[in-house]
Every structure is written in C-alpha cells, then in structure tokens.
Design a protein around this nucleic acid. Structure first.
Lengths: 209, 209
DNA sequence: CGAAACATTGAGAGCCTTCAACAAACGTGG
DNA sequence: CCACGTTTGTTGAAGGCTCTCAATGTTTCG
C-alpha cells in the first residue's frame, strides 16, 4: 500500500494516507461488510454511497462531490458501499487504530467537522425522504446541485435517473414524470436528459420551506 | 450557568459541563435556530429531536435513550429541536469554542464516537424512510425498542402514535392500522395502547432484510 | 448501422392519506 | 367515586399519489 504519514506535527502521529487513487464509472471503492478503518477524501468526480437490500431495492445515502470526506463508520464494517458515478480520484486516509484516535486526542485536522457535516446531510436527507412529495423531493434535489454548479441556473447531472430515484426514494418513472411536470409548469427547462436549466429558483425554493 | 470543568487532565482543557438538568414531558431542551455550542448527554428518560416545517409537518429525527449523546451541529445554529418525551434528566456539555476543539486535538473522550453513532443511525433512518412500506417501518421500529427493553419481547412505548408516525414518515392512522394488522397476523399482542408483546421477533426481523 | 442502455409516457392497481366518526383513556372538579 | 371534557387511539370510506407493468422514444457506443 506504500502508506506515508501526514499531519505528524502535533506531537502525536495523526493518521496515514496513501497515493491518489483513480476509479472508473461504476467502480466500487468499498462494499458493504468491508473493513472500515479508513475514510475517503474525494478530489475529483462524484461518488455515491448506498445501501442495497437483498431484494434489489437500493437507497442512495449521498452523492459526494470534490472536497467531501466520507466513509467513516461507527462499527468495524462498512454499512454502505461506495461507487464512482463518473471518473473519480480520491485519497484514502486510514484513521482507525491510529494512536491519536485511540486516545481520542490529536484527532486529524477537521475530521470531526467532516463527520458532523455528513451527519447534518444525513438528517436533512431523512427529513426529505420522510415528509416530502415527489415534486418537493425533486425540487430539493435540483437546488442541491444548483449550489454545486458554477452557474446556479444550469445543472449538469452526472448521474442516471435511476440514481436520482434511489436517492429520493422514488422510481425512475416518477422522477421522469416529475421533471416533465416541472418543465410544463415552467420552472425548469430540459436542455438534454442530463442538462437542466432552472428557470425559477425562487419557485423551487418555496416548495421546501 | 455556573459551569464547571471536566476532563481537564489531558494537557488541554477538554470541555465544560453543567449540573444535571431536569425536563418535564414535552418541555423543550433547545429549539431550531438556537445556538449550538453544546451537546447533551441523556441520563434518564427519552428525548426526541425533530424538525418542524412551517406548514405543520414534523419529522422526528431520532428518539434518544439514556447514554446517548446528541445535539452537535455542524453549523452555529441548531437545525433540529429537542424535546423531552417523558420526564428526563440530562447533562449539557459545551464543546464549541473550547481551545481543545479549536485545535481539533484533545477532543473530549468518545465524543467523536458519539457523532459517528448518530451518523450511523441517521443513515439507517434514511434507508428506512426511503425504501420501506408501512409494515416494514413499523417492524423496524418495534425491533429498535425491543433492543432497548429489559425483556426483548415486551415493549413499553413512551411516545404517542403521533410521535411514531412522525418518526416513520407516516400518519397516525396508518400507524394504528399497521399495528392492528400485525396483531391480526399474530406477530404482536397489544396489551394496551403503549404496551406491546412481540410474539414473533423472527418474523418481524424477516421484514427488513 | 444496430444493439443495448437510458429516458419518457400511458394505463391500471395498490398503498397510504385524508376526512370523518367513534371508542378509549386520562384528569379534573364536583 | 362518578360526571364530564379533553386528549389519545382506533376504525371506516373515499380519494390521490406513487408504483407497477408495458410500450415507445432517445441516446450511446461498439
């Protein structure tokens, strides 16, 4: 693995990191049940973390964008699997078993903040899944990606309709129908299947609070 | 507030804590928008953390039981509010702004683990809300409380049907109907509205994986 | 160009919600 | 202790939203 040491200046060794890793679309970073002693920092591309049930149902927990750090687990094994949505490069940070973490002081810089950000996102996601209609979910999703876009009014979706459906707890058909509904209401404009122009961000916002 | 200092032996002060606080049923510990510089350790009773929308819809994020530590926020303000379900006693720990946390080393013992446990629960919750039917949700809920009970086959619910509904993303009526359905299928026995005997834990388990 | 994957649209069914009424439990005061 | 109102929980009927199944259109890629 050729691990090297980083952040080793605080008195105790913080954690170790490896080289930059590349993943092709749909390639798996780690799977459910795999050993969870490292976390991932995403450098480029988009990663989805998801949970698959034995009957084929899939719930996508989150889409991660560059800068996100994810993949910590409370238990020893991964509850979620992680797969690249498009071409992605990451760095893997090993943290479990590191003396600094065992002592719970000397924690890697900002790691705590990353876990809390993931917590916050998971809570928001749960609220969306529990108490929203299909349109509200779709509007929230579009706004989420609008915030990640250089041009807030032009979204380039990197994931399929199936991915969106599994993220929002809907079916592909409902996602499709909801998008055409938003189009007919004049809130969005479908330039192509994966490129969407937001005509009225304000109206989309009003749907979720 | 009369705060005292705890865990001050690691070289840097870890965080500060106050006296034991008592809360009556339905009393609010903190509200959405409140300053989020502390977290709560629950000593006795049950606390619900929830998010309320302006139109009255409510999503309960989690029910917390004694030993749980919760209430951290990534941002400066609370996204969720916390209310006592029944009589509860807690200790509040201030962590934000503490020099140890600012340096991100010398973090309070096990605080990191508590955040990760909350993250793990939020992810499980999202999966439940996104990809489950009413019966599956109800079964998962019963098993969750079964695990907290001294007698795994006898649950004493401390929360109302409305609380359960808002936790599972259902309506009160559906919760009620689903319970009677499970009763008629012979999986549970309703001793009273809030006391449930699980006749077949195995059958309940089969519903969720 | 043709096959395969992806996306959209339609029709019908099912699950959950909504609205409404009723039953049960609780608490308070007489 | 009972009467009574309020809260909480259950049950019924109808409707709506989303799912399922199926067909068609579209894009991608060998």
């Amino acid at each position: 693995m050729n691990l090297t040491t980083l952040n080793a200046g605080v008195g105790q060794v913080a954690f170790t990191t490896g080289p930059v890793l590349y993943f092709a679309p749909d390639q798996e970073l780690y799977g459910q049940g795999g050993t969870a002693d490292s976390c991932i920092k995403l450098l480029s591309g988009v990663i989805r973390t998801c949970h698959c049930l034995h009957d084929g149902r899939r719930q996508i927990d989150a889409f991660h964008v560059p800068g996100d750090v994810f993949g910590f687990e409370f238990g020893a094994e991964h509850n979620l699997s992680a797969e690249a949505v498009n071409e992605a490069t990451v760095i893997s940070y090993r943290w479990r078993g590191m003396p600094s973490v065992a002592n719970t002081d000397g924690l890697p810089e900002r790691l705590f903040g990353h876990v809390m950000r993931n917590l916050s996102r998971a809570q928001d996601h749960a609220r969306l899944l529990g108490r929203s209609s299909a349109v509200e979910k779709m509007a929230a999703f579009l706004l989420e990606w609008s915030a990640h876009s250089a041009d807030r009014k032009l979204i380039n979706l990197v994931m399929s309709r199936q991915d969106i459906a599994d993220y929002l707890g809907l079916t592909v058909e409902t996602v499709s129908r909801t998008l055409t509904q938003l189009k007919q209401e004049g809130l969005i404009h479908l330039l192509s299947a994966r490129q969407i122009r937001l005509t009225s961000i304000a109206a989309l916002r009003e749907m979720n609070d």
